[in-house]
Amino acid sequence: MKKSLIISVWLLIIGKAYSLDLEPTILVLNQFDRQVPKVDSTLISNFSKSFFEFESTLNQLFGELDQVDNPAAWRMELVKELGIKHNVNFILFNRIKHEEKRFFMEGQLYNTRSGGLIHHRKIDLANYVGGQINELNLWVGNVFNHKNREWDDNRESILFKNPEEFEHQKTPMGAAMRSLIVPGWGQAYSGKKTSAKIWAGTESSLSLAILISFLNFDKAATGYLTNLENYNNTDNEKEVELYRAQAESDWDDHVKFNNLMIAFAGATGTGWIANSIHAWIVGPKPLKNIYQKWDPPSSAESG
């Protein structure tokens, strides 16, 4: 019993020593929408204990994981095959996509022995000087446990130190208040040109409908009062009949246009408030963090 315990401890020590000496060999597949200069040389120089092999023809084999049911095992056979073919322990797939002033980066790390996905990361952040290389360093350093303070500092240099103290030039409340004054203004202020036009058009049409209803109401009310006066001031049977008919018609019209005016005013008021709430909802949201870290599902992480 004692003998077997001693053998086990020795085996453990030897295994650990072997594993410490084992340098990771990595096949790197990069899929960048723009050329990122000096990627290969930077990785080689920053991770001198690792061996990198770069391959540009295979990167299409790896892609979007969001649509995959079981991302941890979706390329097992291919990964194992590539591991044998290139004689590497890991396959590192990097993808960078640029969008205006931001860039989106995805990293996938596969173990060629198991064929499974062991690390996955997605980030979306503001473009900063040397950002792509720095983020690659952070990503590779993170998965191979190689930390460098400089890389963290580079990234932190683009973050706000005290975001809550910033005065935001555009706020949802500012958008709501603007839309409360002029429908669509808040949406335009938030850059939502289409919805701004829709709200402004709808409210203008409703306001115009109120105005038209009011003018018709006023005309009918004035007509009613005039005909009522004429009706009361005549003792001629024919004129009485005529003025009565006209007064009745005008009275009906003034009630009808009043009801229309109320309906349009109700719709305008409701729309006005809804437009303000909408402006607040679609209003410019303050960015307190420049980058947003993707929170991967645990199954993908564990591989």
């Binding site: 109401f217 009613y224 009706y231 001629n236 009565r244 009745e248 003034h254």
Partner: peptide, 18 residues
């Protein structure tokens, strides 16, 4: 005030409808 609904007061004694 401008949206007042007037009372329908058509009451001329010479009007048979009234």
């Amino acid at each position: 005030d401008s949206c007042t609904i007037y009372k329908k007061e058509l009451d001329n004694p010479v009007d048979h409808k009234a």
